[in-house]
Structure formats: structure tokens, C-alpha cells
Amino acid sequence: MPRALITGITGQDGLYLSELLLSKGYEVYGLIRGQNNPKLELVRHTVPGVHLVTGDLTDMSSLLRALNVAQPDEVYNLGAISFVAYSWDNAHVTSDVTGQGVLNILEAIRLYAGDDLGKVRFYQASSSEMFGKVQEVPQRESTLLWPRSPYGVAKVFGHYMTINYRESYGMHASSGILFNHESPRRGPEFVTRKVTQAVARIKLGLQDDITMGNLDAKRDWGFAGDYVEAMWRMLQQDEADDYVVATGETHSIRELLDVAFNRIGIDEWQSYVKQDPRFMRPAEVELLIGDPAKAQEKLGWKPKVGFEELVTMMVDNDLVEQRALAGI
């Protein structure tokens, strides 16, 4: 039975990846920060087959303990402070967790594995936010990185550190440069879930409008449940490498609003949407669109869920959830 350790187990990717690995017969361990983590019960309820171990990406001794408990064949580092807007308010904390945390887990694996470094394969969750002020369209593995947020800068550090450990020590360490991936499990602070949750509440008469930032920003949005399969496929390759994981399509916030409001029977949504400069980024990333050709060719991976299907899925889920919360 293969064994895997997942950091960031409480996020949408951690939950979907846990389900995938459990379905493949893995023994799965999840790193969780703090005994009173508010998402502890969510993980226990959603993926009861996962063994939880306490640890913190900023504390290497706890990572070594977790590795000794899990004895993993594969480590998936999904842990990060991943809300981009938050990273300007807490740049130092974001750098410690999202950047330095990658170095900590890589070094912990190196110390744990000793002379048999090849026994642990490592996946790093890199991000399309690393491209930032994009230097070519679409973005691919060789595109120059130009991050535009403290989060993006921290991800670049982790990305290059992963490459460095691969080249310096021969570690089987791969990075997945994942473009925006969403799901009904996405946190409500992220724009896709913010929209679908608000639309559901507007439909149910629980909310009158939604306040947004830049409506013209464009993203390459896919389904998180599809993207975790690409992570797993990377660690099944004989040679470690880096891969862009994306749909190859781009959609604006306006298109997101079109599909979400259309699902509840509203074609003209402008009167329901307000804009506020507080929701504008200090340095905006205007256009992200990935070229997944390498992942398709070498991993045999393709996304299954399209943009409209994804947004519809999220609106439908939020309608059910908001009805239950409101007792309707």
C-alpha cells in the first residue's frame, strides 16, 4: 500500500487529493496545524480515512516528526496562505509559510530520507500568480516569472527552491504550476465562490447585491477535482519535472457573473453588482491563460469540467447550502 503525506489537507485541493489517493488504495496522512484547527471536523467528516498528524510548515522539527509518523512514499505540499489579497496585509507571514515553508519541508525530507533520497517523491503547489505581469500569452513552463503580489513572490521562491533541490540532490521533486482552480469547496473569500454564494443568496431573497473589484480581470479557471489528478500523475513519472496545469481558456469576471446570474434566471445583472476600490489589488494581474500542452502530452492529463459547468455546479451547491442555513 503506497503512503502519502499531504500538507494543506484542509483546503479544497487537500480534500479532493485525499479522496483521489484513498480511491487508489493509498494510506493517506494529512498535516494539520493546531489541535483546535476550525477545519479539523471538516476533514474528519469529508475524508474519514485520512490519518491526521499535527505540524506546521514554519516548524521543521514538527515536519520531521510528521514524516517519521507517515513514512510517505509521496509528499504533496499544498499548504500555503493562499488568499492573494491577504498577502499585502501580511507579507511577512505569507513569506514565512508560502515561501520558507517549502524550504522547510524539502529540507525535512532530505534529512528524513538520508542516503535513500529517492524513496520520497515530492510535489510542490506552484501557482499561475508567479507569472503576474505576464511576459507572453499563453503562459508555459518556460515563461519568465514576474510576480505582482507578496503571495506570487513567495510562490516563486518555493518553485525555484523545489528545482534547486531536484538539481542539487537528485530529489524527485516536481512543481505543478496550477492556474485558478475552483469548486464548491472553495473558500468564500475567493472571487468565484464569493459570486456564486452571493448569487444564491440573491435568488433566495437573503441578499440584495454584491460588491466587487475589477470586473475586467481575466483568469484561466478549471475544476479543482480535475487538477489534483495532474498532481498525482506528476509523481508517477520516472523523471521529476514542472508542468503548467490549465484549461487553455480565459474568462473575465464579467463572464463569471453572466453564467452565475443566468443560472438563477437573471440576464441583466448590472443592477445587482456594485464596485468598490477597496477590492482592487494594488498591482493587478490582468490576463492569465495557461498552455497545458506539456501536461497533456507527458502526463496524459486533460480537464474534464468546463467553465460553465463549473460555475453552474458552484451556484447549485450554494443554493442548497444557503437554503439549509436559512432554514428555507
Rank of each mutant, 00 (worst) to 15 (best):
T10M: 07
E19Y: 09
L20R: 13
E27Q: 14
Y29A: 05
Q35I: 14
P38G: 02
L42M: 09
R44P: 01
T54D: 11
G55C: 06
G55D: 11
S62E: 08
R65S: 12
V69T: 15
A70R: 05
Y76D: 01
Y76C: 00
V84Q: 12
S87H: 11
W88M: 01
L103H: 15
I105W: 10
K119S: 14
V120D: 08
E129Y: 10
M130Y: 01
V134C: 03
L145K: 12
P147K: 08
P150G: 07
V156M: 14
V156I: 11
M171A: 13
A173L: 13
S174M: 09
S183Q: 00
R186W: 10
R186H: 07
G187E: 15
G187H: 15
P188F: 15
F190G: 07
T192S: 09
T192I: 08
V199M: 00
V199L: 02
G205I: 01
Q207N: 01
D208W: 12
A217D: 06
F223Q: 01
G225N: 10
V228L: 05
R254W: 11
V259A: 14
F261Q: 03
W269T: 10
Q275W: 04
R278H: 13
E284V: 02
V285A: 06
A293M: 08
K302R: 12
M313K: 03
Q322S: 15
A324C: 05
G327K: 04
